[in-house]
Simulated scan of single mutants.
Amino acid sequence: MNKSGILSVKILTMAVASAAILAGSGCATSSLLDDGPRSSTTSTTKQVLVEDQLVAFGRPAQPLANMPSNSAVIVGEKHSYVLTQGGTEMVKLLTTLTPQNIQVDNDMNFYSANDGYFQGEMKMSYAKLKDEFKRSDYQFFLQNGGTDCTSASDTRINAQRFCFKVPIKGAIYPQVSNLSMIQSNYKALSKPYAVTIYGQSKTTQTQRSGTNAAQKLVLLPFALAFDVVTLPIQLLDAL
Rank of each mutant, 00 (worst) to 15 (best):
L22Y: 15
A194D: 14
A127F: 02
L239R: 08
N114W: 02
M124E: 02
R208E: 12
Y111G: 13
T88V: 08
F133K: 00
S112E: 13
S201H: 00
S40I: 04
S31K: 15
K216R: 14
E51T: 15
E51K: 11
Q100E: 07
A159L: 03
A213P: 02
T150M: 06
N70D: 12
R59T: 12
Q139A: 15
K169L: 11
A213V: 10
V228Q: 04
D237T: 03
A127W: 01
Y117N: 15
Y198G: 15
A159R: 02
C27R: 10
T84P: 09
G146Y: 01
N178S: 06
I182Q: 07
Y138R: 02
L22W: 14
Y186E: 05
A171Y: 08
P221G: 06
F222E: 06
N101W: 04
S31R: 14
V82F: 08
V9R: 03
S18R: 11
R156T: 14
E77I: 03
T211E: 10
A65E: 11
Q53E: 10
T196Y: 03
A72R: 02
L12M: 12
H79N: 07
P232L: 06
D148N: 15
F140C: 00
M108W: 10
A188M: 14
D148R: 13
V229P: 00
D107S: 08
A23M: 12
F140P: 01
G145Y: 06
N114V: 04
V82A: 03
T203E: 14
C163N: 01
N185Y: 05
S153H: 06
Y126N: 01
Q103R: 11
V55M: 05
K10C: 07
V50H: 07
S43C: 09
I172Q: 00
N185P: 08
F57C: 03
N212S: 05
V229S: 06
I102G: 06
L189S: 09
